[in-house]
Design a protein around this nucleic acid. Sequence first.
DNA 1: GAATAATAGTTGATTTTGTAACTAACAAGG
DNA 2: CCTTGTTAGTTACAAAATCAACTATTATTC
Lengths: 145, 145
Amino acid sequence: MTEKDDFDLRNFLPFLLNQAAEQSSLEFQRVYKNRYGMLRTEWRVLFHLGNYGEMTAKEIGERAIIHKTKISRAVAKLSKRRYLSRTRDEKDRRVERLALTPAGLAVYLELRGIAEHYDAKLAAHFTKGEAALLRMMLRRLAGMD
Amino acid sequence: MTEKDDFDLRNFLPFLLNQAAEQSSLEFQRVYKNRYGMLRTEWRVLFHLGNYGEMTAKEIGERAIIHKTKISRAVAKLSKRRYLSRTRDEKDRRVERLALTPAGLAVYLELRGIAEHYDAKLAAHFTKGEAALLRMMLRRLAGMD
DNA sequence: GAATAATAGTTGATTTTGTAACTAACAAGG
DNA sequence: CCTTGTTAGTTACAAAATCAACTATTATTC
């Protein structure tokens, strides 16, 4: 059926990367979803604000390559839950500066702890050197360098 | 805001893997979407049948970790387009054996050619050895070994 | 061998995402 | 200023994904 050629779907990078991403986020997904009732975009916004401090919706979208409508909805939900505050930038009143509230920061810190532990568990599949190389290669593929 | 600690979101594997997967499938996505009018699950089903030959919906779902409702709808669409044929298994009449039609095989071969070329371009970011190691590590993370 | 459970696959209702059009504010050129 | 263009963010509608319930068939158990 495959007509000569040694193509193997399981080695096709777009497929393989997606499978690895999917598999290796399952457990973490259960945490933020079931335990914190969050969506993927929501924890990402939370982590961006926790990790990098005050940002605008646009900046988060650029950094994480998330479309602005997704960000907009995630921000609305996190704001309704009082995890973040929105303040108009008086220099440019189109812009909103987003920042975590104490409640949001608390949730971020909890989740970050879980994330660190989880990441260490994933990295334990490899040697230190391999893991570092993996991250380097992934950053290159993600266009982060 | 980050309160000591050196956690960096951009190195968190579930995030990093997802970013890399997303970025590195953009171009291929445009091909199967715009040029062939397919959804992600659809090309995957097509590739499974092309790559591994006759399979059942369940087998595809297990191998690719895709939920059965997604498979069901993808199979329905590919079948309506006459890219695959469905035949009842007479040993167990709940099961359907799926196989590519000549038309489906032709599309598969075209897409496979594009995929191979695309994969080579991605792998060219690295040395041969690095790329091989990357695939190995991804397969491990994906639970494919 | 009837009753119950399990499996392959489908369908319908709900949720989430993606696309496009929109509002509000600023920017630049005439 | 005032028209035209651009940008940040929202909203409405269409497309797709998720979840639960369903049908049809086979397996199990008493």
